[in-house]
């Protein structure tokens, strides 16, 4: 068992599990968050730190994109990005898939 970060553990059988509620989030470390719940909201829902409406500066839609544990709702990943872009923040362990 390896702690990957504050929320994720790698089990001895190679699955990725929530460290808080033991929900299996991915069956292997190449798709570690396959079972996580993905949600997008307007970027200003991230809180008062997002000062101005992104429309003031850009025509592209900006979203708060998050992944959550389906078992305990812990947020596993957070990014604020243009909505039309895929997430580039994927990772995998072991030799390149």
């Amino acid at each position: 068992m390896i702690h990957l970060d504050d929320n994720l553990m790698l089990t001895d059988d190679g699955a990725v599990m929530c460290a808080h509620c033991q929900t299996r989030l991915g069956e292997n470390s190449h798709e570690p968050l396959a079972h996580a719940v993905r949600r997008e909201r307007p970027s200003r829902d991230a809180g008062p730190g997002v000062h101005a409406d992104p429309k003031t500066f850009t025509t592209r839609e900006i979203v708060l994109r998050q992944l959550f544990c389906p078992g305990c709702s812990t947020v596993l990943a957070t990014e604020i990005v243009p909505r039309d872009e895929p997430s580039f923040r994927h990772w995998s362990l072991g030799a390149k898939a």
Partner: peptide, 8 residues
């Protein structure tokens, strides 16, 4: 690890 970005 799910932490939010800084302010704009």
């Amino acid at each position: 690890a799910g932490g939010y970005p800084s302010a704009t």
